[in-house]
C-alpha cells in the first residue's frame, strides 16, 4: 500500500502498563518485539500499596513508569503476553498491565499498521 495521509482505524486497543521506574523501556521493547510499533512512556508514582506497608513502605519506590502501547486487536493477546513476561511483571510489586478498547485512531501513515509511533 503506498497511499499516505491520515488513516483512521477502528480495530485498535490500548495496552497500559504501570511498572516500577526503569522497567518501561524493557516493556516497550517486548511489545515492539511482539509486533507493536512503539510506545509512549510517562513518569508517575503509585502510592496505594506503599501506604499499606506502613514504615516499611519507605523501602518501596513510589516512582512508576506508565507505558501506553496501541496495537491492532488481532495482535492484542500476543503483545499483552510479551509485555507481561518482560521484566517479570508477574512478580509482586513489579507492575500492573491492562487493555482498554479504543473507538478509533487517526495517524499519518499507511493502511497496514495501526499505531504509527516513530518520529
Amino acid at each position: 500500500m503506498t497511499t499516505h495521509g491520515l488513516m483512521y482505524r477502528d480495530d485498535v486497543v490500548l495496552i497500559t502498563a504501570v511498572v516500577q521506574r526503569g522497567l518501561g523501556d524493557g516493556v516497550v521493547e517486548a511489545a515492539v518485539g511482539a509486533g507493536a510499533h512503539g510506545g509512549t512512556v510517562c513518569y508517575g508514582s503509585g502510592v496505594g500499596y506503599r501506604e499499606r506497608l506502613g514504615v516499611l513502605g519507605l523501602a518501596l519506590d513510589v516512582e512508576r513508569e506508565i507505558v501506553y502501547v496501541l496495537v491492532q486487536r488481532e495482535l492484542e493477546s500476543v503483545v499483552f503476553t510479551a509485555m507481561a513476561a518482560a521484566e517479570g511483571l508477574d512478580r509482586p510489586g513489579r507492575g500492573i498491565l491492562f487493555t482498554t478498547p479504543v473507538e478509533r485512531l487517526a495517524a499519518y501513515g499507511h493502511g497496514s499498521a495501526a499505531a504509527e509511533e516513530e518520529a
Partner: peptide
C-alpha cells in the same frame, strides 16, 4: 474512514492486578 456511530463491541478489560491484591 470508519463509521463512528457503530463502535466495535466492548470487551471486558483484561486486568492483571497482582501488585495491588497480593498480600
Amino acid at each position: 474512514m470508519t463509521d463512528p456511530a457503530s463502535p466495535p463491541p466492548r470487551e471486558a478489560p483484561n486486568i492483571l492486578l497482582l501488585a495491588a491484591t497480593a498480600e
